[in-house]
Structure formats: structure tokens, C-alpha cells
Amino acid sequence: MELKQGTLDMLILRILLSGKRHGYGIVKRIQFLSNEMLNVGQGSMYPALHRLERKGWVKSSREETEKGKVTKFYRLTARGRKQVEKEKQAWHDFISVVNRILEEG
């Protein structure tokens, strides 16, 4: 299943709500949660992360992984947490509107 346009940012933010992760970790988490149903272009993760960082919703730091390698980890900022709530709300509103149309239309 292809990811809908504009939803990747929201998914990343939501996943980071549970704690810091690196780019590959986020990809793995999305695949796991979606039961590998969602096809995320792996490369597109990085432009999205850098975009979110520039907006101030996530911040990054270089840290060691469990295996001892160094890479960039991303975590949510306070503004990012608020943004998750906003995005969630917006998504639910969107879904309910779409559902209503689908059912009553």
C-alpha cells in the first residue's frame, strides 16, 4: 500500500512520541506497525526528517547505537508534541469527513 501524500511527516512525529529513534529505526517501526503493508520510500525518510527538524518539531543528536555505531537520533521537541496532537486531530477530522461522504454520499 502506497503512503498517502503528506502523511509521512505525521507518522514520523507519532512514532517519535514513544522515544528517540534514528532514520532506519523509524522505517522499521512503520513497517512493523503496518505489518509491512505500508510501502515507505526509504530514502524519502531523510528529506522528511530534515524538514521536520528545520520546522523545530524534532531535534537530532549523534549518538551510539546498541551495536556501537554512531548515527543521528531524532526526538520530539515540545512544539513537536503539540504538533502531533494537532496532526492527529486534523487526521481524525479528515477521516470522519471522508467516511461520512463515503457512507452517506
Binding site: 532514520g23 532506519y24 531523510y46 530534515h50 549523534r62 548515527t71 543521528k72
Partner: peptide
């Protein structure tokens, strides 16, 4: 270099 690093890590 950080971008290169994280892509390589991936």
C-alpha cells in the same frame, strides 16, 4: 558529512 553518515548507516 552527517547526512552521508546517516545514509550509510541506513
Amino acid at each position: 558529512s552527517e547526512l552521508d553518515e546517516e545514509v550509510n548507516f541506513h
